[in-house]
């Protein structure tokens, strides 16, 4: 199914993005290059629809991604002609095009200075603030980006997107506790977001995986006694979050995948003797519950994989990579079980 121009294109595969940007000439040709924006013209029937501008914006983004700068500039010109240079959204798009055009760090610094200039005139310009943060992150200045984001959230605390970005920035820096905090804020703003529950759950899970790999040495070093406690606490939290995401969304592949991962790990750890468990103020569900959850996840995952692979009607919406990852996880366990039996 061809991707629609009416939806933001950032998550599309390269092939789909290419397909979209190849539509550019026909879209640009089939719509009028200028649209009269005077109030009188609004009385007459015209070809202007809100969809048109969303199309231009998404086309601009796909063209920038695929390197079709000519079409991108054309889209931008039309948007500027309609909405003017002072529109905040158009300003952000202009900045985006400049970022894409810049060849070296000097150009990027210039763009950054322009953003600073715009913000000194109007420091509540949120799209430009976001662009500036994204540019800082893209230039590798993560701590600057994080502090700017915290500042943005200071005056716009209900922006779930910004909280989510903050969580991501903290996560790549390995600051798991801060990332978890930011993700919790996202959940406060969007409590029904099943993917947020899932990615929130991923955070402590990653946390533990990385802790195992020694990437959380700081935490372990500052709190050697609490290390095992935080580990179990995060696992319990992860278990809860994955369960919640499944509760919010039937047959949610990522939720079941995470549930499988966590229960598998917990069952493996259960063999080890637990120490000081009475000091910790959380309760791990008993091993029977965990085993049942594990079984449920296995059953559901294999059902999803089977029906998706058979391309059954109504089961084709899953991401191919996610299905492949789930298959790998199950195969891994199957081979482990076979080796134990032998």
């Amino acid at each position: 199914m061809a991707p629609s121009l009416l939806h933001p294109p950032s998550q599309l595969s390269p092939a789909a993005a290419l397909q979209l940007s190849q539509q550019a000439p026909s879209v640009l040709q089939n719509s009028p290059s200028t649209i009269n924006s005077s109030p009188l013209a609004a009385l007459l029937p015209s070809s202007e629809t809100p969809d048109l501008w969303i199309k231009y914006e998404n086309l601009l983004l796909s063209c920038l991604r695929t390197g079709d700068d000519h079409a991108a500039h054309q889209c931008l010109e039309r948007l500027v002609a309609r909405f003017g240079n002072e529109n905040v959204r158009v300003m952000a798009l202009k900045g985006l095009v400049k970022e894409a055009d810049s060849q070296n760090n000097g150009d990027l610094e210039k763009v950054l200075k322009e953003y600073d200039q715009i913000l000194s005139d109007n420091n509540t310009n949120i799209p430009i603030t976001k662009r500036r943060i994204a540019l800082l992150r893209s230039m590798g200045r993560l701590s600057d980006a994080a502090s700017s984001l915290v500042h943005l959230l200071g005056f716009s605390p209900t922006d779930a997107e910004a909280w989510s970005e903050l969580a991501d920035i903290y996560l790549v820096q390995g600051m798991y506790q801060q990332a978890i905090y930011a993700m919790e804020e996202v959940l406060v703003l969007a409590p029904n977001a099943w993917n947020a529950h899932s990615s929130f759950a991923n955070t402590p899970c990653d946390d533990q995986v990385h802790a195992r790999l020694g990437e959380m040495q700081y935490m372990a070093a500052t709190a050697p006694g609490a290390a095992s406690g935080t580990y179990e606490k995060s696992m319990v939290e992860a278990l809860k979050r994955f369960s919640r995401s499944i509760e919010l969304c039937d047959d949610y592949l990522r939720g079941y995948y995470g549930l499988k991962l966590v229960t598998k790990k917990l069952l493996k750890d259960a063999a080890k003797p637990a120490k000081d468990s009475e000091e910790i103020d959380f309760s791990l569900p008993d091993s029977k519950t965990i085993e049942r959850l594990n079984e449920l996840a296995t059953v559901k995952l294999s059902e999803i994989i089977r029906r998706n692979t058979a391309q059954e009607r109504g089961w084709r919406g899953y991401d191919k990579l996610e299905v492949a990852a789930a298959r790998e996880l199950l195969a891994e366990e199957a081979s482990a079980a076979a080796s134990i039996e032998r």
Binding site: S10, A162, S164, D168, A193
Partner: peptide, 24 residues
């Protein structure tokens, strides 16, 4: 619109266009 909470993961306001171009 698909998953209405996709934006929490895509974050179109923070798109890193240079990385997207590189990847493409």
């Amino acid at each position: 619109v698909g998953n209405p909470f996709k934006n929490l993961e895509m974050r179109p306001g923070f798109v890193d266009v240079r990385r997207q171009r590189r990847e493409f």
